[in-house]
């Protein structure tokens, strides 16, 4: 089994990258691979628990919660979080932590593959 690292730089709703990231990560977890994810730039908007949008049956944050429940480790870039007024991720879904680029460096050292979306 492999360890897959992800870096996501785009937010929810506006571009498809978050969805592709969740789809790949979910398929990887289902197959028994390990997933470590770093949310960078607008990527840090994805796991906010307050999301609502009646046109969508499943909120992006719920897809990320599903990954956490399947064992994914998800870290958001703290500089990016605070730059966007997200106050250390106080409104994040459980299981997503706030860290920094050294955490990403550690992910890079640790994983077998790196996917940036």
């Amino acid at each position: 089994m492999a360890k897959l690292g992800f870096m996501l730089t785009l937010g929810p709703f506006q571009f498809e990258n978050w969805e592709t990231t969740c789809n790949i990560a979910k398929a990887a977890l289902d197959k028994g691979h390990e997933v470590k994810m770093f949310l960078y730039l607008d990527g840090v908007y994805n796991p906010i628990k307050l999301q609502t949008f009646p046109d969508m049956p499943v909120m992006p944050k719920d897809r990320f919660a599903e990954l956490v429940a399947k064992g994914a480790k998800i870290i958001a870039c703290g500089i990016c979080v605070n730059a966007r007024g997200l106050e250390k991720g106080k409104d994040y879904i459980p299981g997503v932590t706030v860290g920094g680029l050294p955490d990403f460096a550690e992910i890079v050292s640790d994983v077998d593959r790196l996917i940036t979306l």
């Binding site: 790949i24 197959k31 077998d112 790196l114 940036t116």
Partner: peptide, 19 residues
């Protein structure tokens, strides 16, 4: 292909990111 096959390809190869 579906995402499961994509994961197999990712596991078998080096990923060159342009997405």
């Amino acid at each position: 292909i579906d995402y499961y096959r994509l994961v197999d390809l990712i596991a078998e190869n080096k990923v060159i990111n342009f997405a």
